[in-house]
Amino acid sequence: MSAPVTAAPLPQNVFMDRWVLGPKTQRVWGLNHAIWFTLMGIGGGVFLVGRAFDVTTELGRVLGLPLVDVVSFVLIAIGGVVLIADLGRPLQAWRAFRNVKASWISWGAWADLVFLTFGGLLMLPDLEIGDSTPFSGLGWESEADGAGSVMLVLASIAAVVVMLYAGAVLARPRSIPYWHSVAVPFQFLASSLAMATATVLVLVVLDGDDVTSGQAVTLAVLSAALAVSMLLHLTTDKEAPGKKESIDRLVRGSSRTTFLFVSLLAGTALPALLALVAAAAGGARNALVVVALPLLVVGGFLLRLDTLKAGIYPPVTMPSVPARRTRG
């Protein structure tokens, strides 16, 4: 009758651990999700920022394609692979497109597809294989004309969704109060744009150019907006059931170092400061921006990972005379 005892992971449904009332920390989403959230955020952002700074065509090419776009595509593709690999049934991933009426993941899947399709088509005429450019006659030569501009608009909208949707997935249901806030998708968007900006600016530096003051100011503003949003979210509804436990974890608990010190201070506030200084100090500007990139990427990744880890469900009911059990 006995069973061989083997090491096995805990069930992802935390409500199955102990059948006692109490806050429960979700185990559904973790490291893999933080990785693809981050990669897709940077990827979508780089595509847009390169164009916003009008540097896409200047920063070197790979197989004839703009380096900025290649970086964007590669990051999103890797993110997509991580996403699919993490599914319970990766081979059924195509079904993710089905519930586009309601599900943000479906929106994300469509956004990834639209981005890769139209972004890819947009670049295709430039593709060089050997000495030939087999797709040069496709009929759109510039993003500014006809079909090209339509594809640019579609790809750009998709890029915004790609940066945003992971946050929206968390924010839409009310199950986890810390997540159920516009702050979460905003932070993911701001973090994506800040990381992407820094990435593009590092490419500018690597290309031998100088970062402009305006570009540095943009980076400073994005990073500062993220930092302010993080602070605001930590200080609003602090006592709400579930959110209180999430904030405790982030500010005082096991995520204190990674979230408060690394992500918020070193990974967001410090880069904002560096970018601000860079905007004013012409000589050191390039160096400061290069330093800001790894800080932002680490900070952005930990923002996502710690946000996931701080996903705490409040007790399903709050008896009028509270339970005294401390364990949950």
Partner: peptide, 13 residues
């Protein structure tokens, strides 16, 4: 497909 989005979204486990 095993995305588990439903699991995280359900407040009741």
């Amino acid at each position: 497909i095993g995305s588990r989005a439903c699991m995280a979204a359900c407040p009741y486990g």
